[in-house]
Nucleic acid binder design. Structure first.
Length: 477
RNA sequence: GGCGGCGUACCCAAGUGGUUAAGGGAGAGGUCUGCAAAACCUCCAUGCACCGGUUCGAAUCCGGUCGCCGCCUCCA
């Protein structure tokens, strides 16, 4: 069985065929660092993370590169508004991004290059394109790619040059309105680097071409990003890289669908964004990940706080079951390493899990299997079958390596959730314990009316009680 | 206008020719419990936007209609 991914280039599912046995090179377009990342970015990050994790769990050695665009018109504009140098703004936002992506529990990329650290490689690529007649310089010091010279232009986004409308940014110096900038001449006050065409800065697309091939060579196996990057960004990357090298740029083009809110794309320009930091304040990271994985990565996903909460409830049930199993077993099983986690002796569950993920990362189907397995786990725990429970518990440990879900120690996860909920209620642990003691006192006296009144009062304050054989437990609802 | 995609139960969502259409959330009934909660069991789409067609057989393929979205300009 091979891993199959939908290739935007062909519009079809295609098998991932490593060019070197056992090794996969993955480039994923990162973010432009000029403001906080939002839920849309989170989806792209998680999609790449799941892809990388799964391939590694399958035993493939993945070189994963994710870039930072740290010089760009928006960064310059924003920095001017804030009144700090562009480089400082970029640095600040990179730090904020690092926090967000760590919260999301994404594996760190093998390489995380910044555009400004690879200017020489970009200049070399541009010079090569100019020398070959694929690009031309104009008087203001900018260099443009000559789209007409690249017949395959449009093959990724499936459009013909003749059908395209001219861009807004009409530069009289351009030969063709659809030509795009490889290098932008610096205007007064803008950051600049020296080039054969004078002071300037790289265009957006050239940086990914230079960094991707710089770290991964050409061609490499997988290039991905949000679907809004298909055109023009990825189309232009292909044009540059293939014009320059004369060989394909990347084999498989993988694109995740957009996050919408109220059926409208979440984007900074529409002002309808929810930052990752804002989500972090109201839900565990894996609740967001579970929400993402419930919908196939290519399908648009409508985000709402209500859905996030739903996912949080479902996630809680999974951790509750795991915690029960761990309690019976005296502790959690050792975490499986990400690499080769699925090389374990296959069980029917793991085989099916693999089959689902092999099929274009069908995580939604995989989750269906996980929930089925969870129910079975609860069943054998109810029946007191410890051997069966520990076997299922071990299988579920593989879920973390493949999807990035259930990565935490269940008891810790639940305790954290409890603590957060309790803080929201405004009640102290001591107050809750006192109320529980009073209620249990009433229960011993068979004063159930009083006991129920206490429980009801706590419920109104957001504390839910559970009487178990080992005592009364509480959690925050 | 061009290109791409979507429309499956109360909500979300998997399913892309073949037994009873996954799974999650919500809801209903039951087991357990002093009563609850949790867990488990059962129920919840003779039907997959609509209309035609192909086929022994279609949510799945083809044609048409309606509705929605994305890209075509910075965007994950």
């Amino acid at each position: 069985m091979a891993v199959v991914l939908t290739n935007t280039l062909s519009g079809r599912k295609e098998a991932l065929v490593p060019r070197e046995a056992g090794r996969v090179r993955l480039y994923w377009c990162g973010v432009t660092v000029y403001s906080r990342s939002h839920v849309g970015h989170a989806r792209a990050l998680v999609t790449a993370d799941v892809l990388c994790r799964y391939l590694r769990a399958r035993g493939l050695a993945v070189t994963f590169v994710r870039n930072f665009t740290d010089i760009d018109d928006k960064i310059i504009r924003r920095a001017a508004e804030v009144g700090i140098p562009a480089a400082e703004l970029a640095e600040r936002e990179i730090r904020a991004f690092a926090e967000d992506v760590a919260w999301l529990r994404c594996l760190p990329p093998t390489h995380e290059p910044r555009a400004t650290e690879h200017i020489p490689a970009m200049l070399a690529l541009i010079e090569q394109l100019v020398a070959a007649g694929f690009a031309y310089a104009v008087p203001d010091g900018s260099v443009y790619f000559r789209v007409r010279r690249f017949p395959a232009y449009g093959k990724l986004s499936h459009r013909r040059l003749d059908d395209m409308e001219a861009g807004e940014e009409i530069d009289a110096a351009k030969e063709d309105a659809r030509d795009f900038a490889l290098w932008k001449g610096a205007k007064p006050g803008e950051p600049w680097w020296s080039s054969p065409w004078g002071r300037g800065r790289p265009g957006w697309h050239i940086e990914c071409s230079a960094m991707a091939t710089g770290y991964l060579g050409q061609p490499f196996e997988i290039h991905g990003g949000g679907s809004d990057l298909v055109f023009p960004h990825h189309e232009n990357e292909i044009a540059q890289s293939e014009a320059a090298a004369g060989v394909p740029f990347a084999d498989l083009w993988v694109h995740n669908g957009m996050i919408t809110t109220g059926a409208e794309k979440m984007s900074k320009s529409l002002g309808n964004i929810l930052s990752i930091g804002e989500v972090a304040a109201q839900a565990p990271a894996e609740a967001l990940r579970l929400l993402f994985l419930g919908t196939h990565y290519r399908t648009p996903l409508d985000f709402s706080p209500a859905r996030l909460e739903e996912s949080g409830r479902a996630l809680g049930r999974l951790y509750e079951a795991l915690a029960r199993a761990d309690e019976v077993a005296g502790g959690p099983p050792p975490a499986l390493p990400v690499d080769g986690a699925l090389a374990e002796p296959p069980t029917p569950f793991l085989t099916e899990l693999c089959a689902a993920m092999d099929d274009d990362l069908n995580a939604a189907r995989a989750l269906g299997l996980v929930f089925d397995r969870m129910r079975e786990l609860n069943r054998v725990l109810d029946a007191g079958d410890r051997a069966a429970a520990s076997a299922i518990r071990r299988e579920l440990a593989a879920v973390a390596a493949t999807t990035g879900l259930l990565t935490e120690v269940p008891a810790t996860f639940l305790e954290t959730a409890r603590r957060r909920g309790q803080e929201r209620t405004g009640l102290s642990v001591a107050e809750i314990d006192a109320a529980i003691a009073a209620r249990n006192d009433a229960r011993r006296r068979k004063d159930f009316r009083e006991a129920d009144a206490i429980r009801e009062r706590l419920r109104e304050q957001g504390i839910l009680l559970e009487d178990t054989p080992s005592g009364t437990m509480w959690k925050a609802g």
